[in-house]
Amino acid sequence: MILIHCPYCEEARPEVEFAYGGEAHIARPVDPSTYSDEQWEEFLYIRNNPRGRHHERWRHTHGCGRFFNAVRDTVTDVFETTYKAGEARK
């Protein structure tokens, strides 16, 4: 059971309170209609799958309900850091 630090609650809580939200820092285009099929495919489906540092979204579903970002090592499952949505990539 991983403990995850919620940057809004400022507390480490058990992972059962959280829901994974996929890779972070993939912004929805302001006007999707300007995207080519290839660009849209990239936005919709193409994701990084690194061995090591991974930027990902989590939601403190059974807590404050906020979405935030995290850097997790996919080998060790260690969370390097968590930070609020909207903050720059770490």
Binding site: R59, F67, A85
Partner: peptide, 13 residues
């Protein structure tokens, strides 16, 4: 509700 919160919090804050 989760999906709506997602868009509201992260895309259209």
């Amino acid at each position: 509700l989760n999906m709506m919160e997602d868009y509201l919090q992260t895309e259209w804050s």
